[in-house]
Design a protein around this nucleic acid. Structure first.
Length: 847
RNA sequence: GGGCGCUUAGCUCAGUUGGUUAGAGCACUUCCCUUACAAGGAAGGGGUCGUGGGUUCGAGUCCCUCAGCGCCCACCA
């Protein structure tokens, strides 16, 4: 049986067991099992254009411990992994890697080879390639990146079933994404609309509310004079965006503001451009901000959009999609106004501001000094310049941002989930209740899932957006830029009376919001889907509750009428040892692979699993060293216990009260660890197990060693029973080490063994405690005497209350063995003390 | 402005319905080559549990106040 190495080692166990698990199909999902026997996990697909960092290691380990626990509980664990290789991050990486950019006007070149593969020189000017060529490069590069990612995830010991690997850009994901969209469209949940949209002028794409973030930037207040139409003087307004004066459509003050009440309904002329605009009242205007009266422009910020909509104002957009001022502002009618505007045409917003300030200064309409301030401004989270608001046609999915009933339904769906930790639900509620618009899903980009519709063109070649042409689901996925709607021919593309494909792709969240459907092969494999959906858990980080989690709830709500999972397990972030979020720019990022090699995977997993659910956790190599110690200890104690002859075929009997008590104590640990895992609290399960494990090694094994050497049946049987339980309790955390030691004496993988049940209770826990206390005092006496623990004790006198002395009786011989005590005497007394007479030590060396 | 979380030893953190003298690991100090393990072991010092109140026989734990730190959301003229 036992095949125990002379000198057990952790070296190389990762590769060895990874290969064995792969060969043996240890983590293969058993798809014959019914939904009630399945534990399904909606794993976050990593963005392959980035790199795997310690944050992935951290949260992926958490999920893996849960998966391993559930597998040992007898569940068929559906634990697929996918790649999020779709969208803007991939485009950007391809541009940088190959030195190309996508130019849809360039024709496809089947023989194209990129100028570089990795690291183009800094002065290289990106060459334009066709959209199909660009997408081929995307496919090529993600395949390379995915190889590297796969190697890291396997090395981390994640128990995925790789046969269910998915990718958000491949056909099945595109099909699912387009199908879900078309069903949203058919039910009226998706719609297209021309509307003011948050816009990134560098990426030249619309951006969703969820992808927007505030940044503190410098700006300045400018006090401008608007001229009353009745000639009775000027109205002063403060603005940080004077370049938008040509886009001004009204002034607005609070209806209760007595300073401006007489002016409501009158008009003023704008500075420089002499456009007549009304003075209006709206409750969003704040009397104590600036001069209490604001200029409404189309569009300076989201409040402008509200005013524009609610006050039914005209649209006078001056900022174009490239962030520059448009060529024509026909609403400016005065000759002076026109000539001034002509100076601004083509300038960026920043340049225009500089010029307009000069013009205002010259005209005397800029009053007082420009007052610099810093203020929060909205940016696309990946962008470098402030977002503009431009009017454009986009696709939306209703998410409650414009409808209280839908919003309430989404909040209720969130409430159906069990959140771990519970307080993370507040973030969800907070976000959903604060939505101020529907979910914008279209993007003016290339590498993504196309919006799967076409538009009829009228006799003038103008598209009819009110009734899109949609493909039959059996045709999916489609690319409207190359596929033709049913009933049309390619020759009719772009021709009057013909059709035009929707030019946009869907945002990456519009596809990744369907990970349960994609991973579960919704509609492509209905049998599988029925066994895994709704899933048991979505593990993810807290920063994407508002995006990924919420979007997934929205899609599931509409398509399936239920929440997509039962639990949301939210992990924290990794902070560097200074408690700041780890970031590349600070140069404090360590690569996972280097740590696996230095400490061993199980040690790194131990650090990760020590981080409690949802709690931001410091990166700590010290913790990894502790994990390494734990793994080493497990090897050694296993070798020690298994080194004793097996007491009896079919198992011996545990009869000693101390042995029974140890198992009783272990039973309590099993109960606690099990309860903790059922609550998704892997960290507590580990902590309790570990605490017992060290006690077991340091105290119990030391105590019963003597009997074990003497082949005492009870001692060895109990040690082996405890070892079996410990191997399994630790298996979710230290999958490699536990597998290594388990296979020394058991058939098959520990990872498909059954989760331990509490050993039968019994024994004499009081005796075990009493013996432990006395042994600790004997050890202390030896330490204080500065002698080896092995030093013989000629006589040991234990003074203690009668009760304690009575408890000690069953452990007397173990105690004498463990303490090397020749003679043990007991005396009744008020409290526990131990007097030790050491056998004469050999003379110490002179130094 | 609204919300959430945190504050316990030098550091990182446990402390579940209130209940002996508040725990662990790391770090620090001392000792020990001892035949499972020196990549080890035995032991030690170190805390008025953020502030101020309250409830209670009893509060790290429950209630209120305040402060500091972190995060989410809103505001952005």
């Amino acid at each position: 049986m036992a095949n125990i190495p002379e000198k057990p080692s952790l070296d190389g166990i990762e590769q060895h067991w990874t290969e064995r698990w792969e060969a043996e199909g240890t983590y293969r999902f058993d798809r014959t099992r019914g939904r009630e026997d399945v534990f399904a996990i909606d794993t976050p697909p990593p963005t392959v254009s980035g790199s795997l960092h310690m944050g992935h290691v951290f949260s992926y380990t958490h999920t893996d411990t849960l998966a391993r626990y559930q597998r040992m509980r007898g569940k068929a664990v559906f634990y697929p992994i996918g790649w999020d290789d779709n969208g803007l991050p991939t485009e950007r990486r391809v541009q940088n890697y190959y030195g190309v950019r996508c130019d849809p006007t360039v024709p496809y070149d089947p023989a194209f080879t990129p100028p570089f593969r990795g690291d183009p020189p800094k002065n290289h000017h990106a060459i334009g390639v066709s959209r199909p060529n660009f997408i081929e490069l995307c496919d090529e590069l993600v395949a390379i990146d995915e190889q590297i990612f796969g190697a890291v995830l396997r090395r981390l010991g994640l128990s995925y079933d790789w046969t269910y690997l998915y990718s958000t850009i491949h056909d099945n994901a595109r099909r699912a994404s387009q199908r879900a969209f078309l069903r949203n469209l058919a039910r009226g949940e998706a719609y297209t609309q021309e509307a003011p949209t948050l816009w990134d002028v560098d990426y030249k794409t619309a951006v969703a509310q969820a992808e927007m973030e505030d940044r503190e930037v410098t700006g300045a207040y400018h006090k401008l004079a608007f001229h009353r139409a009745d000639g009775a003087g000027d109205l002063l307004i403060d603005t940080t965006r004077p370049e938008l004066v040509p886009a001004c459509v009204a002034l607005v003050a609070h209806p209760d503001d007595e300073r401006y009440q007489p002016l409501f309904g009158t008009t003023v002329r704008t500075p420089l451009f002499e456009v007549e605009v009304p003075v209006l009242a709206h409750t969003l205007a704040e009397p104590d901000k600036g001069t209490g009266i604001a200029m409404i422009c189309t569009f300076g910020d989201v409040t402008d959009v509200t005013w524009w909509r609610e006050l039914d104002l005209p649209s006078r957009a001056v900022v174009a999609r490239d962030g520059r001022l448009v060529a024509d502002a026909p609403w400016i009618t005065s000759a002076d106004g026109q000539s001034r505007y002509a100076e601004l045409v083509g300038l960026s917003a920043k340049q225009a501001q500089r010029r307009i300030v000069e013009l205002l200064t010259a005209s005397g309409e800029l009053l007082g000094d420009v007052r610099p301030i810093t203020h929060p401004v909205k940016f696309y989270e990946r962008g470098d310049r402030p977002l503009e608001i431009v009017s454009s046609r986009q696709w939306y999915i209703r998410n409650g941002g414009r409808d209280a009933a839908i919003r309430a339904a989404m909040v209720a769906r969130g409430g159906e989930l069990t959140w771990h930790p519970a307080h993370m639900q507040h973030r969800y509620d907070n976000w959903v209740e604060g939505l101020n618009g529907d979910w914008l899903i279209s993007r003016q980009r290339f590498f993504g899932v196309p919006v799967p519709v076409w538009y009829r063109l009228d006799g003038d070649g103008q598209p009819d957006h009110s009734a899109p042409l949609v493909p039959d689901e059996s045709r999916l996925p489609v690319d409207p830029s190359t596929d033709v709607p049913t009933g049309y021919t390619e020759a009719q593309r772009g021709a009057p009376g013909g059709f035009a494909g929707d030019p946009d792709v869907m945002d990456t969240w519009a596809t990744s919001s369907l990970t349960p459907q994609i991973a579960g092969r919704w509609e492509d494999d209905p049998d599988l889907f029925a066994r895994v959906f709704p899933m048991d858990v979505r593990p993810q980080a807290h920063d994407i509750i508002r995006t990924w989690l919420f979007a997934t709830v929205v899609r599931s709500h509409y398509e399936h009428g239920c929440a997509p999972w039962r639990h949301a397990a939210i992990s924290g972030w990794i902070l560097d040892p200074d408690r700041k979020k780890m970031s590349k720019s600070k140069g404090n990022v360590v690569t996972p692979m280097a740590l696996f090699e230095q400490y061993g995977t199980d040690a790194v997993r131990y650090w990760a699993a020590s981080g409690r659910p949802g709690v931001d956790t410091a990166f700590s190599e010290e913790q990894m060293k502790v994990g390494r110690k734990l793994a080493n200890k497990l090897l050694n104690v296993s070798k020690f216990v298994l080194g004793f002859p097996v007491p009896a075929a079919g198992g011996g009997t545990v009869s000693n009260p101390l042995d029974e008590a140890m198992l009783t104590r272990l039973g309590a640990v099993v109960v606690e660890a099990t309860a903790a895992f059922d609550e998704f609290d892997y960290a507590r399960a580990l902590e309790r197990t570990e605490e017992f494990f060290w006690w077991f090694c340091d105290d119990h094994v030391e105590l019963v060693k003597g009997r074990a050497y003497g082949a005492d049946e009870s001692a060895v049987t109990a040690l082996r029973a405890a070892l079996s339980v410990l191997h399994r309790l630790l298996a979710p955390f230290l999958p490699f080490t536990t597998e290594e030691v388990w296979r020394w004496w058991q058939d098959g993988s520990v990872h498909v063994s059954s989760w331990p049940v509490a050993p039968a209770s019994g024994g004499d826990v009081a005796a075990l405690d009493a013996v432990s206390s006395v042994l600790a005092l004997v050890r202390r006496a030896k330490t204080e005497a500065k002698v080896s623990q092995r030093t013989p004790v000629s006589r040991c006198t234990v003074t203690a209350p009668a009760e304690l002395l009575a408890a000690l009786v069953v452990g007397t011989s173990d105690l004498r063995n463990a303490g090397s005590i020749a003679e043990l005497a007991t005396v009744e007394g008020p409290e526990l003390t131990v007097a030790v007479e050491l056998a004469p030590a050999p003379p110490a060396p002179a130094s």
